[in-house]
Nucleic acid binder design. Structure first.
Lengths: 163, 163
DNA sequence: TATTGTTATACTCTATAACTATA
DNA sequence: TATAGTTATAGAGTATAACAATA
């Protein structure tokens, strides 16, 4: 009736926890946590994003993110800026987050290892299977997204590109 | 080069977070957290497991689990027992965790909703795709498992049935 | 000596809401 | 009024290690 080993949220949690734990060990000597890495990865995706965008992209709470960016600023890996008005209507409430040179360097240094771990996780998967699982995970995410929308929950992280 | 939207750990984290957040809302009125639910689900899988087994199955730290079981006992949902010697060599260090009647009742009540959420997440997936993503997640888990074994890390949660 | 589980401490993340400064 | 971000506080989970009881 309720078979844990074929229950999807369980499988997701197990697989996700394992990869997260393994990569946390990689990050440790660099003095950053997995959550910090998620912010750096989001900035690599697009530098100069606003706090809200980063929260959405990473599924990190805005209040958590705010203190996380404090910590990353203390480590001189990122910096906050108030967007200037040139070239368009700047919202003075907004804050954008930018790599420092050191932050970009560290991120570029870690990306190959991050990709290595993805490769390890996908060991034995064919190219077709790799594409398949990524596509299925994306669909799964969007299904939950629609549920949030239906419930009018102001869900965090609703804007992952539809592809 | 580093495309976040096709980076597997990111997709896993996003999909997992979404399902977890949604089900946490379901659990809230019942006064239990998602982590508590994982313990109840593990007990439904097999009642009377030892602390170590439950930690392994749920990927919850033993020390976290110990206080979690304290809380579940206070809620009268589970109870600890020291295994008795009859029928085999009982280890007096061990502690087993068992449903109370109320705990079993609550779990049975929540399982259909849990399955509903799985159905929502898999909305639009064919039976073949459903089987596929579960099989792929299981393989992914075992790949990380082998990595832990190779590094001789005393990983938590290494014993998910191989199927 | 090693293992099972408990406890203690400090830290991280979450949840909620109050707060500021803009819009 | 609403929104973007910060800050405060309490709760929940993790990490680490020390500990008691037993093997």
């Amino acid at each position: 009736m309720f078979d844990l080993a074929s229950y999807l949220p369980y499988l997701l949690n197990r697989a996700g926890t394992r990869i997260a734990d393994a990569f946390t060990e990689v990050l440790r000597p660099h003095g950053i946590t997995l959550t910090m890495w998620r912010v750096l990865a989001a900035l690599d995706h697009e530098d100069g994003q606003r706090m809200g965008q980063i929260a959405t992209l990473t599924s990190i709470e805005v209040s958590t993110l705010s203190r996380l960016v404090d910590a990353l600023e203390r480590k001189k890996l990122v910096e906050r800026r108030r967007p200037t008005a040139r070239g368009g209507g700047a919202d003075a409430r907004a804050v954008t987050v930018h790599f420092t040179a050191a932050g970009r360097r560290l991120t570029q240094q870690l990306i190959p290892t991050a990709l290595d771990y993805e490769t390890i996780a996908l060991d034995g998967f064919s190219a077709a299977e790799t594409r398949q699982i990524k596509a299925l995970l994306l669909r799964l995410f969007h299904n939950m997204d629609r549920l949030d929308a239906a419930e009018r929950t102001p869900a965090r992280g609703r804007t992952l590109a539809a592809e």
